[in-house]
Design a protein around this nucleic acid. Structure first.
Length: 876
RNA sequence: GGACGCGUAGCUCAGUCUGGUUAGAGCGCUACCUUGACACGGUAGAGGUCGUUGGUUCGACUCCAAUCGCGUCCACCA
């Protein structure tokens, strides 16, 4: 038998056990097992990514569920994988090339650049995978996927081609968000609005004929070079007479009309809006209605085009802004300038200020799929936890716009579309066509664009199982059971998975969605590098152990609330692991080799009580996990171990451990075994380590040697045993703590042994325990009055305890304590009795409620009587 | 402009959906204890009336309304 160290050493346990589990294939799905399947897919982390607290939380919750299901007899499968993360990865590698070689991506061919990214990917994918192992994630590595694997790429092409043929995907010029830094189009979702302090320039636009001008207000003066009209509200009396008049657009030689459209807010600015259809979403829509021209004055490089005029062509848009304002000022065409805070659209990834531009891109029409997805949640086929996300879901899907899916990046799934070099005929095919279907020409060029990263993520719940092939895995594990993810990708990912699942699998991708919390710092602040308050999960695991990290996250994970992670929380969890470790160490030290789990234990009062506590807590924990109430489960088990098992049961069992029969000793082994199995999903390493040290060589025949393979213990016969007097242990606890309190109140050295008395003879069997735990000279149980002037008294449920203190007794202290308790009781009784005398309460409240209040009142009366009696004695 | 979340002990948070004992936890704090599982420990204790106001109810931290404060998301106000 190996000796257990005094403190749990998490460092060695961590690597050791993951390797054991992995090589024993504990985490691999077992389709042939005949067990009911249960599956979950990982939200694939970016290959650029490093484990952060958000990941740590998501993986912890995944793993708790997966291990829990596995232990409950399911063929549990957790599919791991990573995401290629188009823009993010390309940006990282670009930066690296710049640093190492001083080159930009334009100095490389597409192929050279791609090669470098693949090399980088090979180098980095292992990093996040290793971190997943450190977390203890029980994923099935044999089914690991990468979003750009050939298998998944085929699924992407299949969806693209079929969607195109069904008319769901189309190509055309549309106004899109252009990122001039990353040089790509973005979808609406990838746009972030940040508040910036800017100016509102009021510019005079002179009438073409005669004197006078109108004044327009703008935040972007440089776009005026592309203006093709000025709009006012049709009902605006100030400007009604101007409709149809021509204006001379300053700095150009163009004449533009004054037009009416009701999108104009007469209250804002001057009530006149300049229209730049090529560079503003609103203006673009208005120009369409009003039949105005669109003039592109800003190019994809964010520099002014030749359309902007000789004086400005080639200048960057922001430099041009300054120039335009100067020029207008020189012409006295600036009416005034106001400070103005407004929302500027930037790329969520690159933070670059975006330019709305008209560009030819690929789009996906998602109206139909959105409608079905809405129904799936409304009808309850998919359930959200917390539920309030359903309203967000509904709002977004009801107002959904077509999705811009093409990106001008090289890293990603290349669009399977080819154009004939001769006749320009478009071919959308799974494979490159050998010749043009229209003219027979053999030279075709593939579209240079790639797909939005989320396009492949959307297919994840079925592409990982080999779709479009009808594989066994797909058959068995789709739909998955649960999705656990962060709410910030509700639209990006969750909605798109549901839409594509319903479209391509004709079935939902998962039955339940649990939105995990945001992890914040110890003061509830969002973590950010600039604030410097980032808590690193790797560091946390180094300092406190993986189990401590996992347990901390789990016990804080109340649905719908944020998590504050702090050093002190991690310490608490580490201490808990250590407590469990030491309890086990104590058990190990006291057992003989012949004490095994094959032996049926003999129960006394303490054992019946402990079994009841275990059953109650395990029932609660089971229910809690099934309802994603991980914090409740963790907390319940925490107190079961610490308060019930360590503080109460072990103390009571010490006598039996020293002198008892084998059957008496084996009870504690069973309890420990059950606790280990209950806690394993939360803290797998320490429990497995203890299991090896204490349980392994005492297992009953046929039990698996690894804790990770053993069953969830709720159905154990050992904890279904009913017997004993259920009120005895709580009474014992109350008596013990009152004796200790009397010692403390009377300033008696805890080590000083004095005699004690108690008039609850049924506690006689616990006299040894009480004597040793309270360090008493003796403890006598007897019926009747035990009060005396030389004894300190305390009232317990149904009786009294007394300490024989002789002249050390401090009557003033005792009197004050009792009076305080008496006053409190009187107050409580007053309000209780007022309620019980209220006819409305008696007629309207539930009988159950009335009964419990009555009982309470009776108990309090009894206690009050006892106290009054003692006070009476003292007063004499 | 909409929608949502949060406001409970010094700190970080549970509890509120399903109204009913004395509102809980961890950390921190006070006093004491190195007792042979554990000082990453033990014992005893102090500390909140649940943002504010009003309503519903026999009864509200819990339900409703209003209000203040904080946070988040969505939306084309130049």
């Amino acid at each position: 038998m190996q000796e257990m160290e005094k403190a749990f050493d998490f460092n060695t346990a961590q690597t050791r056990w993951y390797e054991r589990w992995e090589s024993a294939k504990v985490f691999e799905a077992k389709p042939q097992s005949g067990k009911q399947p249960w599956s979950i897919v990982i939200p694939p982390p970016n290959i650029t990514g490093n484990l952060h607290m958000g990941h740590a939380l998501v993986y912890t919750l995944h793993d708790i569920l997966t291990r829990f299901k596995r232990a409950n007899g399911f063929d549990a499968l957790w599919v791991p994988g990573v995401d290629h993360a188009g823009i993010a990865t390309q940006m990282v590698v670009e930066r690296q090339i710049k640093e190492n070689e001083g080159k930009t991506r334009h100095d490389l061919t597409r192929e050279q650049f791609l090669e470098k990214i693949w090399a980088w990917k090979e180098q980095n994918q292992g990093n996040i995978e290793q971190q997943l192992r450190r977390m203890g994630a029980s994923v099935d590595w044999s089914r690991k996927c990468f979003t750009m694997d050939p298998k998944l790429n085929r699924a992407v092409r299949k969806v693209f081609v079929d969607s195109y043929r069904q008319g769901r995907i189309y190509r055309g010029p549309r106004m899109i968000h252009w990122d001039p830094v990353s040089q790509t189009a973005l979808s609406d979702l990838e746009v972030k609005y940040v508040e910036k302090n800017g100016k509102l320039w009021y510019i005079r636009y002179p009438f073409a004929d005669g004197d006078g001008y109108v004044v327009v207000a703008t935040t972007r003066p440089e776009t005026m070079l592309g203006d093709t009209g000025v709009a006012v509200h049709p009902e605006d009396e100030r400007y009604k007479n101007l409709l149809g008049k021509k204006l001379r657009l300053p700095l150009t030689d163009r004449l533009i009309p004054v037009v009416a459209d009701d999108f104009v807010d007469p209250q804002f600015g001057t009530g006149c809006v300049k229209l730049t259809p090529a560079h503003d979403t609103n203006d673009h829509a208005a120009a369409k209605r009003l039949n105005l021209d669109s003039i592109i004055v800003i190019g994809f490089d964010a520099k002014m085009t030749t359309n902007a005029g000789k004086a400005y062509a080639g200048i960057d848009r922001f430099a041009c802004r300054k120039r335009v304002v100067e020029d207008l000022e020189n012409l006295a065409l600036i009416e005034k300038i106001e400070d103005y805070t407004h929302q500027v659209s930037v790329s969520q990834r690159s933070e670059a200020v975006l330019e709305p531009l008209v560009s030819t891109q690929w789009f996906m029409d998602v109206k139909m799929a959105a409608h079905e997805s809405l129904e799936a949640v409304k009808s309850g086929k998919i359930r959200f936890t917390p539920q309030h996300w359903e309203s967000v879901w509904e709002h977004w899907l009801t107002n959904i716009q077509d999705w811009c899916i093409s990106r001008q990046l090289v890293w990603g799934h290349r669009i399977p579309a080819w154009t004939c070099d001769s006749c320009n005929e478009l071919h959308v095919e799974m494979e490159a066509p050998s010749k043009c279907a229209k003219c027979g020409h053999q030279s075709l060029t593939q579209d240079h664009d790639t797909l939005d990263t989320w396009f492949s993520s959307a297919l994840w719940p079925f592409s990982v199982f080999g779709w479009p092939d009808k594989t066994d895995d797909l058959q068995r594990y789709y739909p998955t059971d649960v999705l656990i993810t962060s709410y910030d990708i509700l639209f990006f990912w969750v909605a798109r998975m549901v839409m594509s699942g319903l479209t391509w699998m004709k079935d939902i991708p998962f039955r339940e969605v649990y939105f995990n919390s945001l992890v914040r710092d110890e003061h509830g602040q969002k973590m950010s590098k600039t604030k410097g308050n980032v808590v690193d999960p790797i560091q946390s695991m180094d300092d406190f152990g993986t189990d401590a990290l996992r347990f901390s996250l789990a016990i804080m994970a109340a649905p719908g609330t944020d998590i504050s992670i702090s050093k002190s929380r991690l310490e608490t969890s580490r201490n808990f692991c250590n407590k469990l470790w030491n309890a086990a160490r104590f058990v190990q030290m006291n057992l003989t080799p012949e004490t095994t789990l094959a032996i049926e234990p003999e129960f006394g009062e303490a054992e019946y009580w402990m079994a009841r506590r275990i059953k109650l807590c395990l029932t609660e924990a089971t229910r809690a996990i099934e309802h994603f109430r991980f914090h409740e489960a963790a907390e319940t088990l925490y107190h079961l171990v610490w308060d019930d098992f360590c503080s109460t049961y072990i103390e009571l069992a010490k006598v039996n451990l020293q002198n008892g029969t084998t059957r008496q000793k084996v009870a504690i082994l069973h309890f420990l075994d059950i606790l280990l199995r209950s806690l394993h999903p939360f803290i797998p390493f320490v429990t497995e380590e203890i299991h090896e040290a204490v349980i392994l060589e005492r297992l009953a025949d046929g039990e698996p040697a690894l804790l990770a393979e053993r069953a969830w213990p709720l159905a154990e016969p050992i904890i279904q045993t009913e017997g004993g007097n259920s009120s005895l242990i709580p009474k014992f606890q109350e008596v013990l703590s009152n004796i200790l309190r009397l010692k403390a109140d009377n300033s008696i050295d805890p080590a000083m042994r004095v005699p004690a008395l108690c008039n609850l003879p049924e506690l006689e069997p616990f006299s040894e325990a009480i004597k040793s735990l309270a360090k008493l000279e003796s403890v006598t149980f007897q019926n009747g009055d035990i009060s005396s002037p030389s004894r300190a008294l305390a009232v317990v449920e149904g009786g009294l305890v007394a300490l024989e203190l002789k002249d050390k007794k401090d009557p003033a202290v005792e009197k004050a304590k009792l009076e305080k308790e008496r006053d409190k009781l009187i107050q409580e009784l007053n309000s209780l009795n007022a309620r019980l005398n209220n006819p409305d309460f008696l007629t309207k409240a539930a009988p159950k409620a009335i009964e419990s209040q009555r009982q309470l009142s009776t108990e309090k009366e009894a206690r009050l009587k006892t106290i009054q009696a003692i006070l009476g004695v003292d007063n004499q």
